[in-house]
Design a binder for these strands. Structure first.
Lengths: 151, 151
DNA sequence: TGACAAAAGTTAGATGTCTAACTATAATAG
DNA sequence: CTATTATAGTTAGACATCTAACTTTTGTCA
């Protein structure tokens, strides 16, 4: 056992992020980065979402999400609207241009999965997901335990 | 198969990096981040290293490595020296203060591994490393193939 | 040997992300 | 109802990282 799983995951993370940037640029979406993809992903699923929901889904902070949506709005892929229920809330929706990219994003996402899973058999792929899920759950549990301690 | 391994690795990466920052701060090393730890790790192993070697080991670019070493020098953990063999090269060495931290870094590193591996059996830990190694090798091979294509 | 390419390192500028502090609105408790 | 607290979002400032361009030294090859 080399205890190098963290390092390996870090490297894989770096390479996949870098590759994704290249794919997005190749799709004509220069200035759009993987985090923007996460924001769009939720909009493709739900149609609309508040800043709060987008931040939670993309695992980014609220200020970061503000910047992400600023950019997407600037390039015309989404639009901010006032919520009717809650005057504090902003509702983000896809524009027609944003909706038009659904297919491209699905294709890139599929290509990424195939890139990562291709050296693995079906069983190995499932095993990897299972092990990573175990590790992540444990880390999140540990984190929650520690933040609860400070009460 | 959920094809979510990339997302899982990204989350695990985020959490471990954040935890590491906390540990470093708790060890009195505020301003020192995981990348500085990578730089120091090579120095703990080799005693001295050039900027080039440090960059390669830490998987960071040369400009980033310049900044990392600037910081470590500023807080007194390393020292830059001119190489005797090559006037272009800078040799980085640990100071006594840097050397004194060897134990703390080893402890943090061990604690990290235990945190990540604790929910896994010995077999599962080995399996995880094997699968991640396979995925990483494949990604690196693909990357090399693509960059070779542009000749 | 002399010119040109490669390599080591730094500087400058851009970018993505974070924390802290702020504004505005909603919810709650006396 | 009013005062306090909580929540949604933005702004400001810091920081780690990157790419591009530059300087200096070394290697190559005609």
């Amino acid at each position: 056992m080399k205890h190098d799983a963290v390092m390996l995951m870090g490297r894989i993370h770096d390479l996949t992020q870098k590759w994704l940037r290249g794919e997005l640029a190749a799709a004509g979406l220069s200035g759009i980065v993987p985090s923007h993809g996460d924001v769009l992903a939720l909009l493709f699923m739900k149609g609309e979402a508040t800043m709060h929901e987008l931040a939670a889904f993309a695992h980014r902070t609220k200020p970061t999400t503000t910047v992400l949506v600023d950019k997407l709005e600037e390039v015309g892929l989404v639009r901010r609207m006032q919520s009717e229920d809650d005057a504090r809330s902003v509702v983000v929706v896809l524009t027609a241009e944003g909706e038009a990219l659904r297919g491209s994003f699905a294709a890139i996402s599929k290509k990424l999965a195939s890139r990562v899973y291709s050296p693995l058999s079906k069983d190995e792929g499932e095993m990897l997901e299972k092990l990573l899920t175990k590790v992540l759950s444990n880390l999140e549990a540990a984190k929650n335990a520690e933040s609860a301690k400070s009460d």
